[in-house]
Amino acid sequence: MDDRMVRVVGILIDSFFPLLKAGLMFTVPLTIISFSLGMIVAFTAAIIRVLNIRILDKIVKFYVWIIRGTPLLVQLFIIFYGLPSIGITLNALVTAIIGFTLSVGAYGSETIRAAILSVPKGQWEAAHALGFSKLQTLQYVILPQAIKVAIPPMANSFISLVKDTSLAAAVTFSELFNVAQQITARTYEPLWLYMEAAFIYLMFCSVLSVLQSRLEIRFRKSGD
């Protein structure tokens, strides 16, 4: 082995645990928190759309339009670098959580809405005829069926989110990719370090893919 190789291998080994740690301590929690909050937003927004609740319906449409029509990176910049000029200063973590939550909420609301609309109209009618209110119908009859439809696309967006959190590096949040950038700045080995970062993302996503297929099998078995 020549000296260059020895040096690179040394750097890769030294940086593996800092990168993995950044992944486990920041990327993973950021993903889980944003996704959970995003799901709450998504369900709320989808239900508002489906029940056609007057003014709220318009607000939700506007929100989805803005979030889906602008780049996530630009949204993060506006929150982190833009808002301080009107007196709202948020730290990198809060910025990232808000940005990703809004994103998951907007895309997720469309997925959930589509899943709700995929449940046959006869289900609503049967529940209505039994005396259920619209909310009760959603709770007991429609959502349990819609969730089965929504799980595969939701699992996909969860996996996407793991990778999208790397955008938080651009607003100085020290997650996996940001740490890779820092080490690169010190060591001048961008090819190898970014490859190593990519490898850790790949590991995370592979684990999630396995979990995803287990989850889907389980949901296909239950019920009908």
Binding site: P120, G122, Q123, E125, A126, A129, L130, G131, F132, Q136, Y140, V141, P144, Q145, K148, G223, D224
Partner: peptide, 28 residues
Amino acid sequence: LGMVFQRFNLFPHMTVMENVMLASRKVK
């Protein structure tokens, strides 16, 4: 009013028993 539809419209994610019980539990 009880209503019976051409296409049954049973709740597919519930057992027969749960189908019959649901409204008396949640509405009544």
